[in-house]
Design a protein around this nucleic acid. Structure first.
Ligand SMILES: [Mn+2]
Ligand SMILES: [Mn+2]
Ligand SMILES: [Zn+2]
Ligand SMILES: [Zn+2]
Lengths: 135, 135
DNA sequence: ATAAGAGTGAGTATCATTCTCATTCTGTCG
DNA sequence: CGACAGAATGAGAATGATACTCACTCTTAT
């Protein structure tokens, strides 16, 4: 825990990571691109996605996919997960990660160097439970 | 654990669920559509995706997204997760779910009725660790 | 100065998924 | 039995996020 490969981080990669940290919430590639437009930090969409992929490969960023297919990115240092309604899409963050640094046996890990995980819970929110059979 | 809402299951929905169970592995919407083509159980892509969404809303099916954006579906009864290499994409199943029926406080659940979860680990496989700085 | 290599981004291509909407199926009622 | 309402279906078009191309610009080393 606590990688510090700040070496080898391109300026634009550093920018993207910083934006994600500052935002305090998950952002899509499109979001990041839009946020930087007009600023001296602006960069093309291709560069945004290219660097987001590389940041993931370094374990600095992870992403989850919405049902819409859109991917939301966050710094791995922010170990946050969500509970999402399969009906209305309402989402709420969990206040703690249920697996901390889970105990995966070396056998399960099979030589991999673990970088991060994604964990999402799905269910019906109270509103949609009511609307269950009618509607 | 052990829902039995076999009531309210359309024939084609039942078919899709059965295919997923029989397959023993995750299948994409395209996979399912292709598998059924030519058989008397064939159905259009729109119907496949429509019913997959409804099966998810009933908590019978869950899905995860590959980096490619493709979604893979599985029956929720099969509580299996994966460890994927962020570099080469190689993937291996975990032999057990690290969160079983995790202990989420009612406070965290906030009125939701939990249906299923997705959990994926990412890292570097042994091969790609070697290729680390070169390449 | 020159050259090799890395980084960039506007535009285009891709392709899984969703949307449209005309058609077919199913069950009900007079 | 027709006639009709509503649900289900699927071919084809639309969508939209992401990946790819490739010419151009920087950077760095000789
Ligand atoms: Mn976590
Ligand atoms: Mn599990
Ligand atoms: Zn809801
Ligand atoms: Zn690998």
């Amino acid at each position: 825990m606590g990688e510090q490969p700040s070496i080898e981080l391109l300026p634009k990669q550093h920018q993207l990571l910083e934006q994600l940290v500052l935002a305090g919430q998950e952002l899509s590639g499109q979001d990041l691109h839009a946020r930087l437009r007009g600023t001296p930090l602006a960069m093309g969409l291709a560069t945004v996605y290219r660097h987001l992929r590389q940041l993931q490969q370094q374990g600095l960023v992870r992403c989850r996919h919405l049902p819409s297919g859109e991917a939301l990115f966050a710094p791995t240092e922010r170990d946050e997960h969500h509970l999402t309604c399969v009906d209305c899409g309402r989402t709420q963050p969990l206040t703690a990660c249920p697996i901390h640094d889970a105990h995966l046996s070396p056998e399960q890990i099979g030589g991999f160097q673990l970088l991060f995980h994604t964990l999402e819970f799905f269910g019906l929110c109270s509103d949609c439970q009511g609307r269950q059979d009618q509607d």
